[in-house]
Design a protein around this nucleic acid. Structure first.
Length: 959
RNA sequence: GGGCAGCUAGCUCAACUGGUUAGAGCAAUUCGUUUACACCGAAUAGGCUAGGGGUUCGAGUCCCUUGCUGCCCACCA
């Protein structure tokens, strides 16, 4: 029974959550009538799918109240669609968080173990970080559960999970083979302390007092009595790398100097005067020294100039600062090796001596520093991996323009399109250890140097390479998932039934069972690897398996059979020879086992099998060096092969799809070194929707997904990438709708941030007001895209609303106690003696159902929730319940029986009927928003046998 | 500098494609109530929807314009 007194949200919610989890209601396998199905049954289940891939939160820290808000919106949609009768999947995940993740973990190691990442070494650091993240993930997941997010936690995935690796890396390899990946020299933000390149987002700006120095650059030839041009700079030392002086083409003062040659002081290099609209004539002298290698703006201006300039007028860059932030390259010897500050002073002294300094003035400059290291960022030229987005962006623009993907709120569409249309090539490499290491292998060490002209050059094993294609062509680089060498991927044939009978007949050529074929097909569909060759046992089932897989391979590999892979004795499957097996189980000898059929080869001992398999491996590895081979055989030989390969000091990895396990063994070729960089996190999270579903082998039933729900702040960074990569890899849109929520602000309206110390933990709110109240705060009256502050007044109000529902439930249930629920369910509305107030209530209900449905369908969650709130409280509770009371009571104040006449009884029944139906519908309508309390009351609501035991799988009311 | 959004009751926000008298919560004032709920109910007050102009039978909503506020992008060498 519902307890008397105020509603105890926290206690109730915890037990309801356990009830849901224990019954596996969050799994798409759960069916309202059939209960929990197997994965195969779920796959065959004809209900419409509905999928939301949850944006993966950072796994290293517990989310704050704003991070959790998204789950509330996602869950409203998940639960609503479940009530509509769909097969619903919420796919959760946790993010490794790139640079932030690396910094956080390193700090912890430094504090706890007094070891830096260099002390640990790359491999150990990665493993330790992985373990650390695995430990933290359940904590982050606990918060997701607590807010009620009804995602399938058993399918939760970490972004670096081995099951998603192949998908992510494969995309890069295939982008490369489609000519959409290149390595190019580009200006980067280099953090000389952290020794890494930084994305702009990982930097911040600080104000610094400095001096703006006016320097005279002499002209080679005097023009109209002018013999120099004066530039203003705060970074005099970079003049050693100047390649032009740039002025605004409209600036009258310099018009006649455009195209003139300047002799750069100190180095005596000759550089031209060129133009750019970007130069502001009012600042300094209106003439700017151009150092494309060390200033992002200059770099941009160089590219712009070069894109329109004639071939002989193009300018280049000269890199004069190295990765230690020291002066380096084609510069006078006396500056070599100085820090930038030392060089600046020295340059100024030298210029002063030559009388080239016109004046100095104080200037406030904002300099870029690393967000974590606080070190001054040097912009330098470096070779980076890029993805050419030209061919990716058009389909992604089209998908949104055509309305195949809809963005809510609609005005954000423009934000997306503007960003996409201005999108430039995407630099995807990051100098980190924590992430997907770029699958490129070099024959010898890759090194990046500055040559005598200040140009970035790369060498592989000491040999200079022009670009990555050049390196590949020369055999110095390979772009592939596995390390160079021969790869054996081993699976056994696809039969699952292993009853005794099957095993006994299995050794002769029986075909795959129906379920075996199905299993193989699922496997082949979900296999994210391509093979050069398939080698199969000549036995039927193995060969069939090989054929099914080969048919799904884009590389169309040949299948060859090898007699040595034949399994001759089922006994070795158990690791025993047949004699031992019969000794254990004498019944076998009496059976019709083909084991005793004379036409078959003799059974072997394990040693014999091992020796023939060993021969085969050696021969194959030699014959097919550098290939990737899939080996398909029967279970016993399969095990022997694995054992043998495992003993060959080879790298191992394993994937399981359906009931089939694949183990890969790389027999590495000596001398190959993998690229040191990892991918930008957006490269992996940009593949998250299909990468997760593939890893769980359910891409075929749940992709494309229905809704991507996330904060509007990462529309460009994340959503755009998912659309591009999905259209490229899957040739499908990743989702049909994008719902962008606003950001939750602190109670004072300020942005919530750790540094401001105004971060609120969800736990804090939930223990005080309940998860349902918090969900209402997120949803009620808020519209997509708009930010809103945390309001304790509102939370208080929503807590009271829950209490109102609780008490209304007590009233309704206590007045239905004498009711036969089957009788009520079978009573037609026409036979009821409805009062005016009943009809008004029922009409109101019809309207409410229609409104709520329409609003949820249109993603107007805030209005839907608002109307439900108002309707329940002010129409149902305040008006209808009050009006109906006197008809329901069976005793007056003094305990005397009332409502005893036949007419009164009929009226009472009509009231009960209306009360029951409306209340029941309210619970369902409210359930997506406040799942806990609605479920708790549902448990006590009288129900017919046909009705779902959990409100999660009840039916959305139809009108 | 470019783009986007916002400006509505004292405060925080709604009003879905133009359509009754612009609504909630909190705060305020008055009254009531104990067979669901004092974590309640009823009522009152509070608005030239930032200013100005336009389109329309009709504008918070569409167009123009001015002024603030916030966010994103590009940023002074």
């Amino acid at each position: 029974m519902l307890t008397k007194g105020p509603y105890e949200a926290t206690i109730t919610e915890e037990s309801i959550l356990n009830y849901w989890l224990e019954n596996k209601f969050f799994k798409p396998e759960y069916h309202p009538e059939k209960g929990l199905q197997t994965e195969a049954e779920m796959r065959a289940d004809q209900r419409d799918p509905f999928t939301i891939v949850n944006p993966p939160p950072n796994a290293y820290m517990r989310p704050h109240i704003g991070n959790v808000s998204g789950y509330a919106y996602q869950d409203v949609l998940l639960r609503y669609n479940r009530l509509l009768g769909k097969k619903v999947l919420g796919q959760p995940g946790k993010d490794h968080a790139g640079i932030q993740g690396e910094v956080v973990v390193e700090k912890i190691f430094l504090e706890n173990k007094k070891k830096s990442k260099q002390d640990l070494g790359r491999e150990k650091f990665y493993k330790a970080s992985y373990a650390h993240f695995q430990k933290l993930m359940p904590m982050v997941m606990a918060d997701e559960k607590r807010i009620g997010l009804s995602s399938d936690y058993e399918r939760n995935l970490f972004t670096l999970d081995p099951r998603v690796v192949n998908t992510i890396l494969n995309t890069f390899v295939s982008l490369y083979s489609d000519g959409m990946v290149y390595k190019g020299v580009r200006i980067v933000n280099w953090d000389p302390v952290a020794k890494t390149t930084l994305a702009d987002i990982d930097t911040e700006r600080v104000e610094r007092e400095t001096e703006l120095v006016y320097i005279k650059y002499p002209l080679k030839q005097e023009i109209d009595g002018i013999n120099h041009i004066t530039v203003a700079t705060t970074r005099a030392e970079t003049m050693l790398g100047d390649t032009a002086v740039i002025v605004n083409p409209k600036d009258e003062r310099y018009k006649k100097l455009i195209g003139a040659i300047v002799v750069l002081p100190l180095t005596n290099r000759e550089i031209p005067i060129i133009t750019s609209e970007r130069v502001e004539s009012e600042f300094g002298t209106g003439a700017v020294k151009l150092t494309p290698a060390h200033s992002y703006d200059d770099y941009v201006m160089m590219n712009e100039w070069n894109s329109v300039a004639k071939e002989n007028e193009k300018i280049g860059y000269i890199n004069v600062i190295n990765k230690q932030a020291k002066m380096y390259g084609p510069i006078p010897e006396r500056y070599n090796g100085l820090s930038t500050e030392e060089a600046r002073s020295k340059v100024l002294v030298d210029l002063e001596e030559q009388g080239l300094i016109e004046k100095k003035e104080a200037h406030t400059q904002s300099v870029m520093v690393g967000e974590r290291s606080k070190a001054v960022i040097e912009q330098i030229m470096s070779s980076q991996w890029f993805i050419d987005v030209e061919r990716l962006k058009q389909p992604a623009i089209e998908a949104v323009k055509s309305g195949k993907i809809q963005i809510h709120p609609k005005y954000m569409t423009k934000k997306y399109l503007t960003w996409m249309e201005n999108l430039h090539d995407w630099p995807v490499s990051r100098s980190l250890w924590w992430g997907y290491r770029i699958p490129v292998w070099y024959k010898g060490e890759l090194s990046e140097d500055i040559d005598e002209k200040g140009q970035v050059v790369e060498t592989v094993g000491g040999e200079k390479v022009e670009n990555i294609n050049d390196a590949v062509n020369k055999g110095l680089a390979k772009i592939q998932i596995d390390p160079p060498g021969t790869t054996f991927a081993v699976i056994r044939h696809g039969a699952t039934e292993h009853n005794q009978e099957h095993r006994l007949t299995g050794r002769i050529d029986t075909p795959l069972s129906e379920s075996g074929i199905k299993e193989c097909e699922i496997y082949a569909n979900n296999l994210q690897e391509s093979f050069d060759l398939i080698i199969s046992s000549p036995q039927k089932r193995a060969f069939q398996t090989a054929e099914i897989i080969a048919a799904k391979q884009n590389s169309k590999p040949n299948i060859i059979t090898d007699e040595r892979l034949r399994e001759r004795d089922f006994g070795i499957a158990e690791g025993k020879n047949w004699e031992e097996l019969i000794a254990e189980n004498p019944e076998l000898a009496k059976s019709n086992s083909p084991l005793f059929q004379p036409e078959l080869p003799e059974a072997e001992t394990i040693t014999e099998v091992e020796s023939r398999v060993e021969d085969w491996i050696k021969e194959t590895a030699e014959k097919y060096t550098g290939k990737k081979i899939l080996v398909v055989t029967h279970a016993g030989v399969y095990r022997v092969i694995r054992r043998q390969l495992g003993g060959m000091n080879a790298d191992e990895s394993r994937t399981d799809i359906a009931n089939l396990q694949m183990e890969r063994y790389h027999i590495k070729e000596e001398g190959w070194i993998q690229d040191e960089d990892v991918f930008d996190t957006w490269f992996s999270s940009g593949q998250w929707p299909y990468a997760t579903l593939r890893a769980n082998n359910i891409n075929d039933c749940f992709f494309p997904t229905d809704v991507m729900e996330t904060g509007h702040d990462i529309l460009e960074l994340w959503v755009s990438r998912m659309i591009m990569l999905s259209l490229y890899t899957e040739n499908k849109i990743p989702f049909k709708h994008v719902y962008l929520h606003g950001l939750v602000k602190a109670p004072d309206g300020q942005k919530m941030s750790k540094s401001k110390g105004n971060v609120i933990a969800p736990e804090e709110i939930i223990t005080k007001y309940g998860a349902d109240s918090l969900r209402l705060l997120y949803v009620v009256g808020n519209r997509a895209g708009s930010s809103y502050p945390v309001s304790y007044e509102k939370l208080e109000g929503y807590k009271r609303f829950l209490n109102k529902i609780w008490n209304a439930a007590k009233f309704v249930l206590s007045n239905l106690e004498d009711l036969n629920i089957d009788h009520l369910a079978n009573t037609d509305i026409k036979n009821l003696n409805l009062a005016e107030t009943d009809r008004t209530m029922l009409d109101h209900m019809n309207l409410l159902i229609a409104d709520t449905t329409r609003r949820l369908d249109n993603f107007n969650l805030g209005i839907a929730a608002q109307e439900l709130y108002d309707s329940f409280w002010h129409t149902f509770a305040d008006i209808y319940l009050e009006e109906v009371k006197m008809r329901l009571y069976t005793k007056d104040k003094n305990g005397n029986p009332i409502n005893t006449s036949e007419q009164e009884k009929q009226s009472r029944f009509a009231a009960q009927w209306t009360l029951y139906n409306c209340f029941r519908e309210y619970l369902i309508l409210l359930h997506p928003f406040i799942p806990f309390i609605s479920e708790r009351i549902w448990q006590d609501l009288p129900k017919t046998d046909k009705e779902s035991k959990t409100i999660m799988y009840s039916r959305w009311p139809q009108r």
